[in-house]
Simulated assay, not measured.
Amino acid sequence: MDSNLLNHQIDDILESVLEDTTGDVYMVNPSWDAIEEFVTVATGFDGELPTVHMLADERTLKDVMDDFIVASNAADLIADDVLALRTLEEAPENSLLVADDAVVAIVHAGDRVGGLVTDDQEFVDAAYETYAARWEDATSFNLRTPPISRVRETLSEEIGPDAEEDFTAILESLETARGDGEGLDEVTISLLVAAKNEALLYDISKWGEDVGIASKATFSRTKTKLEDMGLLDTEKVPIDVGRPRLRLKIGDDRLREADNGQLATVAQSILN
């Protein structure tokens, strides 16, 4: 590893540490941006990743993981034993990356970021032992979001391959999936995909509840909101026993004419 990593972006610093480290890494007190960037870098990393033990502020973790795109990719990393999340009671002054052969302090100076590196073995050993002990005493962070790989696989199986392709394309067109005006949330995206493929509300909501995206009740409430706003339409489909089920359809011509890359943008503009 370079003696210091100056005038780098946070993703460059993270990639350097991941490339140069073979043992476990403690990522201590990462910022919101550093958590997002770590998930992006680790998801696209070409090679074998070390296991990263992330010790982070609980509020920061919750806020970052409200974004389905970040959280579902983080869940994949957790499932692959590449990432583990625990919360900090007392945070150090700086953000740290602690490996068995180096400690990197992440320092922000205005819009610049630097990684100040020490490989003094005595200091590194002491830091590593300190944060290994703090890790053992820390509380696990419960990430309820399902892994994106499982979401895509089950969506393809339960609703159809075209629906999975539409879902993936919409996510790739978004920077965030929070449902806060900056991005659509995962339930809205799922319902739009179902409507584009004319799937049943029962099927998409059952899939969403089974995979861990949201409850059937949440899907139903969101469907009603989108229907009231004219984004979705429904038609009754009779079944042999019981009440008819609802087939979802796109309800706005602007959405019908949009391709997957535009669907999210058009939906957001209507919702806003």
Rank of each mutant, 00 (worst) to 15 (best):
A169C: 08
L83V: 09
E19W: 04
Y202D: 15
R178E: 13
E48K: 14
T40K: 15
L248C: 11
M65K: 00
E153Y: 13
P238L: 12
T60Q: 09
F68G: 02
D11L: 02
I148C: 01
L192Q: 06
A126Q: 04
A258L: 01
A34F: 06
K223G: 01
W135K: 00
V193A: 02
G115R: 00
G181H: 08
T21Q: 01
P50Y: 05
L83E: 08
A126R: 02
V113C: 05
L85V: 01
V17M: 10
T51L: 08
G212M: 12
D259G: 05
A126P: 02
I270Q: 04
V241H: 09
R134F: 06
S140L: 04
D46T: 15
V113Y: 03
A217N: 08
M1F: 02
V187P: 14
D252R: 07
S16A: 15
G242P: 11
D20I: 03
L231S: 03
D67V: 06
A177L: 04
V17Q: 07
W32L: 15
V104F: 04
L85M: 02
A105K: 08
I69Q: 05
S149D: 10
E89I: 05
I13M: 07
G181K: 11
T130H: 14
L271H: 00
V151S: 01
T22W: 01
I270G: 00
T222N: 09
A258V: 02
D24S: 12
E36R: 15
Q268H: 01
G181C: 08
D66A: 12
E15M: 13
A71F: 09
T130P: 00
A105L: 06
V187A: 09
V107R: 07
D57Y: 14
V70W: 03
T168D: 15
T40S: 15
D203V: 03
E182W: 11
I170A: 13
E19A: 12
N272S: 13
V117Q: 07
W135V: 04
L14W: 11
L55R: 04
A84N: 03
D166L: 14
